[in-house]
Design a protein around this nucleic acid. Structure first.
Lengths: 408, 408
DNA sequence: ACCATTACGCAAGGTCTTAACGTAAAGTCT
DNA sequence: AGACTTTACGTTAAGACCTTGCGTAATGGT
């Protein structure tokens, strides 16, 4: 279907992509001259490209605040030109969001679950997607791109889950096919950490290379290097959960994920509380997960909680330091449940990640907390939709019988 | 001087680069149709590009082993079209090599030294370069590209050394300027580990992403990710020598470099020999560095030596495992002095780098042993020379008054 | 000698970008 | 208010590049 683009068409596609990226990432509508300067293209070239994009409905014209000289028309992406769906399938929660072409979230739906059966989970995911779509007044065939995050080791190329614990038969399912039913676009499956990293890459003030730690019950890293998501030769980059470390509470060697994951934090909190039952920490621990309380108490300055956080930071930093140092990274984002850890956590990590001689590492928390991964899925879906658009793939939807770009 | 390339010229430059890369990396002369297939360009396009490159002397025509159908002309790079120089400045040794456009080494020169004065070292390097050039019958102005490796933390963009121990005032010198005197081309300065990695990237059977450990007295890593050298935002990628580890012999925390570096190996060997003076290892230790003997004895199966290697591998693997795992790398090269460590070392490392669930890491030794870094410098210089050529920069040398590519 | 096969060369045609020039629409100055 | 400055826009001709298509060349096989 998609013949390789050759000849001058390749140049045009490349230039169009640059113009589009410029208009897409800019927060405010941009003038043609600005775009020309930023992209290095001629004003003339940009003008024709913008004109075409506007004619096809991709761009919107804003006319214009006055300045010196003739006021310039400014352009931005047409928000309603298409819509995308992002999904995050977690061990206990499924979230789906619908966004428009500008990236604004129109509606979302989520569902808590304790499912261990793949088939049942599949159904829940489908239902959640439809609820989100309903909230935006859309149906499946109208979606331009669908991007899905799932826990587990993902085979991005094949659209399958390689390994996962906790959900039976999840790795046997052809997820992109199953979840893509009813959609007119291909579904894309990716690692939760990778998508979390993508979400961070859209933040203002985000450096071109950084590391993201998706940290909850499971632990995985996402790497953006020189502005691009790095997946690794086998698509297993960032899978650091299996790294062997020493559990500071038991003294036994264990997998990193099993030591700093939310489940273990919960266990440890109860151990500490049992040992010292008159602390405030002990008194707030209920039946449900204690992780949030630990960080809350630590941020309030309670000794016992701070100790837990410190030991966590110890273990995590020991594993992460070689990676950050080797890659010369100086920004790290924490996403996932632990992102609510607050300043105690970031400070503890920053202190331990300092290596003599090297520039310090800045640790930041995701501003999206629990929705970081979905937001990343939206980012990926948008990217995919625009790519399809550049190849003329989205045109057919509502420009079916129209004459093909003015035969002059 | 070099105005930004715009318009269709950019397309042409890109296509020419692809054709050239194809002909440059291929071991044997290639036919036009082959190149067209590999690059995805039309035969016609490739033909004109090749024609022009041949006219300008960059390519050489080989006529033709018969097959079915009309025999095709094949093309390869003209070896004598230009020459490049690569230099490796080590703590105790300086090497310079001269290569032709095809990458074949024409001559080399090296010098052992114990200099601690930057100025004196500078002079030695200059003399060594000239000796190498003399061996190839060339002079400085005739060189098309000059690439230099130095120990220490390098600022590639600025062409300076940031930090170094052992050579006074070395970081005060503007090395690219000082060493570039007399050359008609810009000099490029880079990290030894980065260049070692570049050298490995030219090996057959080299994966697109891998790690190189330049391991001698100093220790640094070079990363090639998705086929491209990764330098990091501050150009400090791979600087893992400062990583904190525990010295298994003293039990004290120390920098990785200080624990597994050749100097420490030497110390440890003497300790072990003193403790157990009747071993074969003890008997072969002379006044000079003992590292080589340790590995030799270990490869011969001697217990005491194997223990040293095992502990070395322990420490190194603990530092490297997170990096390899996080980046999903499954090939690692060892370059530098330790590359003579033989199979004991690679086996010991491979065993320890295995992480449950992940694909194994294959550890290989550089086939160039001590000359790996220079070879990498040559690779970098070639790249630089071809880049200049693509921008028309090398033309002026011997096509001064010639009419500019046939005004038809 | 004829055919199949592969390589090569040439010319027409189309797409894309550039450069140049004139026009349009504001604000500013006198 | 009118002239001027400043910035933006639109059009057109020209140039560079790539592709397509076809005819020719050179070999081996039958």
């Amino acid at each position: 279907m998609n013949d390789p683009i050759v000849g001058t068409a390749r140049l045009k596609r490349y230039n169009t992509a640059r113009v589009l990226d410029e208009l897409r990432t800019g927060a405010v509508p941009q003038r043609i001259v600005e775009v020309a300067e930023h992209t290095g293209l001629t004003r003339s070239t940009v003008a024709t490209i913008v004109e075409e994009l506007e004619a096809d409905g991709w761009l919107q014209r804003h006319d214009p605040a006055g300045s010196l000289g003739r006021p310039a028309a400014r352009f931005s992406v047409t928000p309603g030109r298409f819509h995308v769906v992002g999904v995050d399938i977690g061990l206990h929660r499924v979230v789906a969001e619908v966004a428009d072409a500008s990236g604004a979230v129109l509606s979302s739906a989520d569902a808590q679950h304790e499912l261990h059966d793949g088939r049942a989970l599949l159904q829940l995911v489908g239902a959640t997607i439809d609820r989100a779509l309903g909230g935006a007044g859309l149906t499946r065939p109208e979606v331009a791109a669908l991007s899905i995050a799932s826990v587990g080791m993902i085979d991005h190329a094949e659209g399958r889950v390689r390994v996962i614990r906790g959900i039976d038969a999840w790795s046997d399912l052809d997820l992109t096919r199953e979840l893509g039913r009813g959609f007119a676009c291909p579904a894309e499956l990716d690692n939760d950490a990778n998508l979390a990293a993508l979400a961070m890459s859209r933040l203002d003030d985000c450096p071109p290379s950084f590391l993201t730690v998706q940290w909850g019950e499971r632990l995985g890293a996402g790497l953006v290097l020189d502005g691009r998501l790095y997946r690794g030769p086998l698509g297993a980059a960032g899978e650091i959960g299996a790294l062997r470390v020493v559990d500071p509470w038991s003294g036994e060697p264990a997998a990193l994920e099993a030591v700093v994951g939310a489940e273990r934090i919960d266990e440890v909190a109860r151990l500490v509380a049992a040992r010292d039952p008159f602390t405030r920490l002990a008194s707030v621990l209920g039946a449900e997960a204690a992780t949030a309380q630990v960080f809350e108490r630590a941020n309030d300055g309670e000794r016992a909680a701070i100790e837990i956080v410190d030991l966590l930071a110890d273990v995590a930093a020991r594993a992460l330091a070689p990676i950050l140092l080797a890659l010369d990274l100086h920004r790290m984002y924490i996403t996932g449940g632990i992102a609510r850890g607050g300043e105690v956590l970031t400070a503890a990590l920053e202190r331990r990640l300092a290596v003599g001689g090297a520039a310090p590492v800045e640790v930041r928390l995701s501003p999206f907390t629990e929705n970081t991964v979905v937001r990343g899925a939206i980012t990926a879906a948008l990217q995919s939709a625009w790519d399809t658009a550049l190849d003329g793939g989205l045109d057919r939807r509502d420009r079916a019988a129209e004459p093909r770009r003015a035969a002059r």
